[in-house]
């Protein structure tokens, strides 16, 4: 099978065919109202009459990030069918070679390249790196946005924690007047701040999972792809909780230190 841009015109099925079968993607089937067994006319040039083929399969698009924003349809034909249509003779754009084991890929490619005339062998992995360049760019973009978002969240969290601890000024003043040591108070406040941070981040992870589900639901519908756009991994969840915990402890410690260094009566506003 091979791919090419083709013009496809719907021909009314008249009789049982001796035509060749093609596969089309489900997006094309839905948009052009095509069904299995329908006969279509294929040509390489718009408006020109081409050869008639029967739709033998409707295939689901792969979860390829490089394709999500592309609106083209895909038609799969037998190699010789497409070569005939394009007037390619027996030319091919590329072909794949399976090796007996992974270890011999390098030596096989070398042997082919030393003997080949007019083409080069590449490792599939190298090709994959090149073809996923779009995805790599999007991934880098998302990472950069993620860093900015984390910075904003960190500041927000720090601010909230400071406020939360500041709310306890009267309690802290009362404890100090009762003779509780500054160290014990700082420890207590930090513990409370850490508890709030962990609880908040766990709730946040829940919100994140729900949002991720909604994002996937939405974009899978928009782009008609099984690709998952958002995945909340264990690493991400642990990272979020750990970051919140660290920020909670830092904010709690900073605020508690300030409170215990302020005279208790001043904390009471006297």
């Amino acid at each position: 099978m091979s791919f090419a841009a083709l013009c496809l015109a719907l021909a009314i099925a008249q009789s049982q065919d001796s035509t060749r079968h093609i596969a089309i993607d489900e997006r094309l089937a839905a948009d052009a109202h095509l069904h299995l067994g329908d006969r279509v006319s294929l040509s390489a040039t718009p408006g020109e009459s081409g050869s008639v083929a029967t739709i033998g399969a409707i295939v689901r698009r792969s979860a390829d990030p490089a394709e999500i924003a592309r609106g083209e349809y895909k038609v799969r034909l037998h190699l010789t069918q497409l070569q005939d249509l394009l007037g390619y003779g027996d030319r091919v754009d590329r072909f794949a070679v399976a090796t007996t084991s992974e270890q011999v890929i390098g030596s096989a490619a070398e042997r082919i390249n030393s003997a080949a005339f007019g083409f080069r062998a590449h490792r599939s992995r190298d090709i994959a790196v090149q073809t996923s360049a779009t995805f790599a760019v999007v991934s880098r973009f998302h990472r950069a946005i993620g860093v900015i978002t984390i910075a904003a969240s960190a500041i927000f969290l720090l601010c909230i924690m400071l406020l939360k601890v500041d709310e306890r000024r009267r309690d802290v003043a009362a404890l100090r007047l009762m003779g509780i040591s500054a160290r014990t108070i700082v420890r207590g406040v930090v513990l409370e701040a850490a508890g709030i941070a962990v609880f908040g981040s766990v709730v946040g992870v829940g919100v994140g999972l729900a949002t991720s589900w909604l994002v996937n639901l939405h974009y899978q519908g928009v782009y008609r792809t099984p690709l998952r756009f958002s995945i909340v991994t264990t690493d991400i969840m642990l990272g979020a909780v750990a970051l919140s915990l660290v920020l909670g402890i830092v904010a709690g410690w900073l605020a508690a230190r300030r409170l215990v260094h302020t005279p208790p009566l001043a904390l009471f506003g006297r």
Binding site: I148, A151, A152, I155, F156, L158, C159, L162, L163, D166
Partner: peptide
């Protein structure tokens, strides 16, 4: 401290 943090947060 609170104001500076808020301004920083809003800036981001």
């Amino acid at each position: 401290a609170r104001t500076v943090l808020a301004i920083l947060g809003v800036s981001v």
